[in-house]
Nucleic acid binder design. Structure first.
Length: 514
RNA sequence: GGCUCGUUCGUCUAGGGGUUAGGACGCAAGAUUUUCAUUCUUGUAACACGGGUUCGAUUCCCGUACGGGCUACCA
């Protein structure tokens, strides 16, 4: 840990499918930390498991980060001085260091086949060990360069027999880790297993690859999920074995994001189970079960998602709730990250979205919903759209709801709330409407304030209240009792449409009530 | 089971040896007398339990309970 080194952090997802929302939060905290300290945010693709590789996953990761405004400074696309940034392209590198560990006595070759390992586990279980592991207790009973005759080992290697390299962990040591979030954590070496470093296909495991790459890429802080905490002791031992302990990065293990109903960490299955998105973007997998709706497609503003995610496990210690990325960067510190897992609260996410929606200029919203409006075959005139958004944005949760909830701005009223019509359509109502329509003809320009003044004076003349006519206007214009102020609605609708709807409504209301 | 991390309103959290334990979401009520929404006001509701330490613990320590993570030639 050397605080004088320039901050370099990495987000290192595995391209095995869509990037989970928890991964996005990890990326976010990394970005926040890097930017706060004028450092560099690196994306590294950990594709060392060829069996789990999913085509398209890397593109998805990139697109998801971009959408959230978390694009990396260095990575497979942007390049950088420490590439390549895909582990599969660094394959040769890892063997060299694994061999170095063997030579220095920190690792060894192992020739055990899968059935050997299974037999070992079975044997140990029979003996009353519920969690058998390949460690110092049993390695001399297995087939490896520690237990076998050196000549035999050399022979097998020369003959090209499959082998792996394992980390040799000797008992009797205490490994102390100072986690930036959790403080001191201690592990005893005799409890640790001899982790595989290099697999028989020549690829490194995560443990090997992440140490080599973090070192070579000069990573200063490893900010990752709590699921990695228990293997951190192995990682420390690897840094030691390689002689890199002096520049070992600091560790910060993030609390996990938990299921909405409590038990366990949030998983992709919870999305379908609760009808909520748990991925940033939609993903089409091979099966329907493996396909998911994203926050983006659900209608979320990326700023709202980021803001929401930032507060899942962290808070600034003030009462401010709304932060853009810049403000988050300013306020962010690792020591304010929580230790315990945070439940995924979708209601809160929606609240954030509405806050963002209301704060978004209506002209921007207009541009966002224009394609949706056009898709319904309605004209998407920017100024008109902006007027509609102005009236609707505080009444919906998502921008995409505007053309749905406010469909009556674009098309004739499709149906009336008949219950309300019956309740409000009184014998004298017809006269009032007709009289007001009459007077409305003369209003020019057709502005809300003038409309209101006119109606008001009419009502005063007749000694009646708004309640006698306005609900009917609302029903006539929109069909529903929900919506913006009647006069604002009329202004946006325009004189022609407003009056036409009022006319038709009179006949419709009579019919409904007959 | 072993190792390890954690535990303040239903949820996200602030706080921290002596506080009316604060805010936000949600929920409920009221106001803004045209709806819905927004906004505002009010209400609802929490320190897991048991021992210590202390004049005093929600706060510090130790247990217990409960929960999370890890326990693959996956990351």
């Amino acid at each position: 840990m050397n605080p004088s080194r320039p901050v370099r952090v990495r987000f290192a997802p595995s391209p095995t499918g869509a990037l989970h929302i928890g991964g996005v939060r990890t990326a976010l905290y990394n970005v926040l930390f890097a930017r706060k300290h004028g450092g560099t945010f690196i994306l590294r693709i950990e594709d060392t498991d060829q069996n789990r590789y999913v085509p398209g996953a890397e593109d998805y990761i990139l697109e998801a980060l971009d959408w959230c405004g978390l694009s990396p400074d260095e990575g497979p696309v942007q390049g950088g001085d420490y590439g390549p940034y895909r582990q599969s392209e660094r394959k040769a590198l890892y063997r060299q260091y694994a061999e170095q560990l063997v030579e220095s006595g920190h690792a060894y070759y192992a020739f055990d086949r899968e059935q050997d390992l299974e037999a070992m586990r079975e044997r140990l279980k029979q003996a009353g060990n519920p969690a058998p592991q390949y460690d110092h207790r049993i390695r001399m009973d297995m087939r490896n360069s520690l237990s076998m005759d050196p000549e035999d080992v050399a022979h097998r290697l020369a003959a090209g027999e499959d082998y792996i390299i394992r980390l040799k962990i000797d008992p009797g040591q205490e490994i102390h880790i100072t986690d930036e979030i959790r403080g001191d954590v201690v592990f005893r070496s005799e409890e640790l297993d001899d982790k595989v470093l290099l697999k028989s296909d020549g690829m490194p495991t995560y443990h090997m690859a992440n140490i080599v790459d973090d070192h070579l890429m000069k990573i200063t802080h490893v900010i990752r999920g709590e699921e990695w905490l228990s293997s951190t002791a192995h990682h420390v031992l690897l840094y030691r074995g390689l002689g890199w302990e002096a520049t070992m990065p600091a560790f910060a293990h993030l609390p996990l994001i938990m299921k909405p109903d409590g038990k366990g960490k949030l998983s992709k299955r919870d999305g379908a189970r609760f009808g909520i998105p748990v991925f940033p973007l939609s993903w089409t997998g091979e099966t329907e079960e493996d396909s998911f709706v994203g926050f983006r497609e659900f209608g979320f503003d990326p700023g709202a998602v980021v803001n929401f995610l930032a507060f899942l496990g962290w808070n600034p210690g003030t009462e401010q709730e709304l932060f853009d990325l810049r403000e988050l960067t300013e306020a962010f510190t690792i020591d304010r990250i929580h230790k315990s897992g945070a439940r995924f609260d979708f209601d809160k996410a929606q609240w954030y979205n509405q806050q963002y929606l209301m704060a978004t200029p209506s002209s921007d919203l207009a541009a966002q919903i224009a394609p949706l409006v056009e898709a319904r075959g309605w004209p998407a005139e920017p100024h008109f759209l902006a007027q509609v958004c102005d009236l609707m944005k505080e009444r919906v949760t998502f921008a995409k709801d505007i053309p749905v909830e406010g469909a009556y701005f674009f098309t004739d009223v499709q149906s009336y709330d008949e219950g309300m019509v019956r309740k409000r359509w009184k014998p004298e109502s017809r006269t009032h409407l007709e009289d007001i329509i009459q007077r409305l003809q003369a209003v020019e320009p057709f502005h809300g304030e003038e409309l209101e003044a006119l109606v008001k004076s009419y009502l005063e003349e007749r000694q009646i209240g708004f309640g006698a006519v306005l609900p009917l206007f609302r029903l006539a214009l929109a069909g529903t009792m929900k919506g913006p102020g009647v006069f604002e609605m009329m202004e946006v609708l325009g004189k022609e449409k407003s009056l036409a709807r009022l006319e038709t409504a009179i006949a419709d209301f009579d019919r409904i009530c007959s």
